[in-house]
Computed example of a mutant assay.
Amino acid sequence: MPGIGKIIFRIMIAIIVILLLLIALIIGIGVAGNKLTIAVTGVYTVGRISDDAILGCTFIPDTTQANNIQWEKVGTSGVVYKYENGKSLLNGQNADFKGRTSLFISEIKSGNASLKLTQIELSDAGTYKCIITNSKGTGEDTLTFKVGGYTDVVVTSPSNDTLRCTSSDWYPKPNVTWESNSEDNITNTIKTTYPPALFNLTDVTSELHGAQLDVEYTCKIHTVLAQAVGVSMLTDFGLQTTARLEVFNSVDPLSVPRLWICALLLSLLLGFVHH
């Protein structure tokens, strides 16, 4: 009958084998699923109508030879941008993007393939592909680009017991909610209107009546892309307010390179063996 030491040793070997198989499986899924030979990471982005935006894309560069970059938008013909052998090749560029795209040329050698898009339009929203080719191979990733309208909120007090939140140029049409740090029910004291604005946008005006002194009221104008928050309080010394605008930009968790997961598993494995 094998001793305790041999049993423990066999268990450790089994764990190591399982971890190695798991690492191989993850690498296999990454290669088979995305057909990547170099790691490329696209970043989920939110852009505001008429502003400029940066569609993030990074990759592992070849520092000795050319890194060719091609941006495409899923569902459209032509390219969004093409960079090959150190030059921009825009003959096949989709007409919707002419004069509105550029790369950060000096940063390509560091692995930055991000695309700058100017004068954003609603039609720019969609799924984009960042495709990289160099001597190491070819890799690509997709990213989602959301476009909307949103601005800061301004809180005023048109009368002694009224608070008014105003904000302009929202898309899609936002929801408005009010909160207070008192126990009073304020639901029936609120009136919100949405005056139309240019380019399918909408303005927002929301009033709360019956506001009390020294009670904190919060007005939130929000969509799935952004929210404007105004906090106010009526005092004996006048109206006190603060405001902030939050845009829900975030890295798409599905586009984190699987290589990082493998590296983490490998480091755990080595640490286990060492101990």
Results as ranks from 00 to 15, higher is better:
H275L: 11
A113I: 03
L270T: 12
D52R: 07
I7Q: 10
E207K: 10
L268K: 06
Y194D: 08
D51Q: 15
G137K: 05
W260P: 02
N175R: 05
N94I: 02
R244H: 08
T177V: 10
T202I: 15
R100G: 08
F199L: 11
T118H: 03
G42S: 08
D169I: 02
D51M: 04
F9W: 07
V154H: 04
V74H: 03
E246Y: 00
F104D: 06
T192A: 05
T118N: 14
T58G: 09
G3H: 05
N68R: 07
G78N: 11
L245Y: 01
G78Y: 00
D214A: 13
I105D: 11
L270C: 08
K116A: 11
D214K: 06
S255C: 04
D96N: 08
I16L: 11
N94M: 05
G137E: 14
D252Y: 00
L254S: 15
T223A: 04
T41Q: 13
I38P: 01
V40Y: 00
G230C: 10
I15D: 15
L36H: 01
N175F: 04
Q227M: 12
K35W: 00
S168Q: 11
V176A: 07
A197I: 03
I60Q: 14
T58E: 10
I7F: 08
S267D: 06
P2W: 02
F104S: 12
K82I: 00
V273G: 13
L103T: 07
V46G: 09
V153H: 00
S267M: 09
L234A: 14
P2Y: 03
N181Q: 13
T218D: 07
A263H: 02
I38C: 09
G3R: 05
G126Y: 00
N249M: 09
R258C: 09
A113G: 14
V247T: 10
G126N: 03
V40G: 05
L22K: 04
G3I: 07
G33A: 12
I261D: 09
N200G: 10
G3V: 10
T101R: 00
I105K: 09
V43W: 01
S255F: 00
S182C: 11
